[in-house]
Amino acid sequence: MKKRYIFLAIVPIVLSLVLAFLPDKSNSIDTKRNHKSLKSAKYTGVTPNNLLLESVNDNRFIQPDELAKVIIGQDPSYLLVDLRDAVQYGKFTLPGAINIPYEKILTEENQAVFDSEAYNVVLFSNGTIVPDQVWMILRRAGIKNLKVLNGGLNQFYQLYLNPPKPLETDPKEAFEIYSYRKAVGAHLGLPNPDEFIPKGGENVQSSTIATGVKPVIKPAVKAAPKVVVPKKAEGGDEGC
């Protein structure tokens, strides 16, 4: 018998023995999910690596301009979810949004709302922190099609109630975006910030986007210049 054959016969046996003696890779959680009794990790939801990758890139965000298109076009493939409490929801929300306070996201009926293939769920609140936390929890639970409104309602307000006016030297696109945002604001009929914020104009902060640019106020809105972002009296949700 040729030496080559003996060598080739030994190779698979040695390799399979190595496999049998490899240390067990699965930890206790994996072992429970490990129906096929293999050594590698088995996850039904998103893997930790992927969750980390998703959390550091911006793909989960929907930009205010995209959301404005969705609202104006009444796109049925998007479901807007307001994560603030019922009081704030009652005062103002985006058109077509439903209210699920962030404490209640894990109840059974709300899970059914999130876990639907039929539409993209847009999470929003006053800022981005609460929607981001909710996104993380729901994503870990394996729910797909989640979007987070970038900048939250604060920036949404700022963009459409008081859009940053482009400079004269800016390209033509900047002017188009500017007029588009003004038109969106008019279409949405956004309420006056003075009426919306409990303490009126005192309790607002200056625009972060319109820095150095003189803001233009729509005639219908009688707000003080550069005063757009509602600042929450209670803690829990920061602005952009």
Binding site: I13, L15, S16, L19, A20, K39
Partner: peptide, 9 residues
């Protein structure tokens, strides 16, 4: 399954 593969080999 690992010992099964050893056996099959």
């Amino acid at each position: 399954p690992y010992w099964f593969t050893v056996g099959i080999s």
